[in-house]
């Protein structure tokens, strides 16, 4: 049961009064891959920040792996949900690659040997095993995105939540990142504008528009519904 996300009637209002999410319900099953699409400002990022308790619902509930997101469960849930932010320069806040990949395991209070083992394994998984001692600032965007994924893989997450994983990448780096994501067998929820990525990788699509869920269904059905896509400012791949 660790691999599921349940969002029930989630409404979130920013302190300034802006309603970013209105009555959003969504459920992601074990090993399911769901794409979250919709125009900028639709509430995608706000929703993602709810999935590991950085934001808390104004009303409604979020449940991860059967556990409600509360202060008591927060440590466990943050280890289960690997959240990869859009800009890797926000995700990689240590000067050195190693320290960023080790950050999560260290805060899980794992012993040093286990931390090192996990760092090696995570960097290996994203094909960056030779870069542990490199300075993040010197990496290319594609390399940074890979390391950013490694920083959550080292925590052994059950669920990967990614924000715009392919944004800004050149075609080659984009393709190699898609292959990397495809090789990972995990529950995955990804916000993206990249409709070709959606077609290649995801079995289900959720359209979020104007703070609400506008559509939710199998990728084939959604991408073939031209009228629906146009209504929400999207394009078929």
């Amino acid at each position: 049961m660790h691999h599921t996300i349940e969002v029930e009637n989630l409404t979130y209002t920013y302190p300034g009064g802006h309603q970013a999410l209105i009555d959003v319900s969504l459920s992601v099953g074990p090993d399911e891959r769901v794409a979250l699409v919709g125009p900028n400002g639709a509430g995608k990022s706000t929703l993602m920040l709810h999935l590991n308790g950085i934001y808390r619902p104004t009303s409604g509930q979020v449940t991860v792996g059967g556990l409600p997101v509360t202060d008591d469960n927060i440590g466990q849930i943050r280890a289960w949900v690997g959240l990869v932010f859009q800009n890797p320069d926000d995700q990689l806040f240590n000067p050195r690659v190693f320290d960023d990949v080790a950050f999560g395991p260290l805060h899980m209070a794992l012993p040093e040997e286990e931390v090192r083992r996990r760092v090696d394994a995570a960097l290996d998984a994203v094909g960056m095993q030779d870069y542990a001692d490199h300075i993040s600032h010197h990496l290319s965007l594609g390399q940074k995105k890979r390391v950013a994924i490694a920083t959550v893989l080292s925590m052994h997450p059950k669920i990967l939540v990614l924000d715009e994983p392919t944004a800004g990448l050149d075609p080659r780096a984009r393709r190699s990142l898609i292959n990397l994501l495809d090789s990972m067998e995990r529950t995955m929820l990804t916000a993206t504008h990249d409709m070709r990525l959606v077609a290649d990788l995801f079995t289900r699509v959720v359209i979020l528009d104007n703070s609400r869920v506008a559509a939710d269904g199998p990728t084939g059905d959604i991408l073939s519904d031209g009228a629906l896509l146009t209504e929400h400012g999207l394009e078929a791949p």
């Binding site: 920040l49 943050r78 806040f93």
Partner: peptide, 23 residues
Amino acid sequence: ERSERVYNAMLSRGYTGAPMQID
């Protein structure tokens, strides 16, 4: 603004306010 985003990224990975590093 960046510090807010970075802070969120830190929280997501279990940050509790104390700097930690390998001995």
